[in-house]
């Protein structure tokens, strides 16, 4: 196999990798907005992490210690 064919294959390879990533990324974006709209999950509330950040404020979501190492 010469350099030319290798480069062509690499080119196609890269194109499909990019296509794949493109699909994943937009699928992710779509799912974020869908879940927000259907009320499955509210993502916007996380910006309260900033507004409510004093040490004695109640955590937005308490950490479930059993799951974490």
């Amino acid at each position: 196999m010469d350099q030319e064919t290798l480069m062509t294959m690499a080119g196609y390879g890269k194109f499909f990798i990019l296509l794949f990533i493109f699909i994943i990324f937009y699928g992710y974006a779509f799912s974020l907005y869908k879940r927000q709209r259907s009320g499955e999950r509210d993502f916007e509330k996380y910006s309260d992490l900033v507004l409510n950040d004093s040490l004695d404020a109640a955590p937005l979501e308490k950490r479930d210690n059993s799951k974490e190492k």
Partner: peptide
């Protein structure tokens, strides 16, 4: 994925 990943 968002939920799972960002807590780990």
């Amino acid at each position: 994925m968002f939920h799972w990943l960002e807590q780990r």
